[in-house]
């Protein structure tokens, strides 16, 4: 999943949110440098991504993208899900998406000192350009995927993936609604499992 979904699936738990955000930038034994609750956020992030990548409905969605974007389809669907999360925010939260995003930035700011360096560099731009909110617009999706395309070693064609969102918006929205509720239940359950094991 992408950043906004990970923030939402941290269920307003401060250090879980931090761990959930930095997880992709924490490699190997570096995890031992973090305190227990942040570690749980990192583990939760990995469980969420594993659940998403192996879900049949997500795979069905990726079938629309695979002919053109190959294995980058997984990245693209993650970004698309953030788009639908913002688009249908009122169905998932009582607060506004703007308030939620601001709260997320405020929380992350309080823990800047533990950010891995690569994440800190990226977070600066994320906050400055308000990536989280812009995932709710096709133009924001285009910019985000174009940025990712520039960083890939091969020609991913991700800069054109927003066109697939426009073309298959209804299909992806059906998939999002069917999948995201299940993911929310899974993440909640996994988080309490992680808490009980520590």
């Amino acid at each position: 999943m992408n950043f906004l979904a990970h923030a939402f699936l941290s269920f307003d738990q401060e250090k879980i949110l931090v761990g959930n955000f930095i997880a992709d930038f924490v490699k190997g034994r570096q995890i031992e440098n973090f305190e227990e609750e942040t570690k749980r956020g990192i583990f939760l992030h990995r469980e969420i991504d594993l659940f998403t990548d192996s879900h049949p409905l997500v795979k069905a969605g990726q079938s629309y993208l695979r002919p053109k974007f190959g294995h980058y389809s997984t990245v693209i669907t993650d970004v698309f899900f953030d788009y639908f999360l913002i688009k249908n925010w009122s169905e998932f939260s009582a607060s506004t998406v703007e308030d939620f995003i601001q709260k997320t930035y405020n929380t992350l700011d309080r823990h800047e000192d533990i950010f891995p360096e690569r994440f800190a560099n990226m977070y600066y731009w994320m906050k400055k350009d308000n990536w989280l909110l812009h995932y709710g617009e096709v133009e924001g999706i285009r910019r985000s995927l174009t940025g990712m395309a520039k960083r890939t070693r091969f020609d991913s064609k991700m800069e054109q993936a927003h066109l697939a969102l426009i073309e298959y918006e209804d299909e992806f929205e059906v998939i999002f609604f069917a999948f995201f509720r299940e993911l929310e239940t899974f993440a909640r359950q996994k988080l309490s499992e992680l808490a009980s094991h520590s």
Partner: peptide
């Protein structure tokens, strides 16, 4: 077959 089935159902539900 599962993948094709899901794609068809998604298509039907979307429309």
């Amino acid at each position: 077959i599962t993948l094709v089935l899901l794609m068809l159902l998604v298509k039907m539900m979307a429309g």
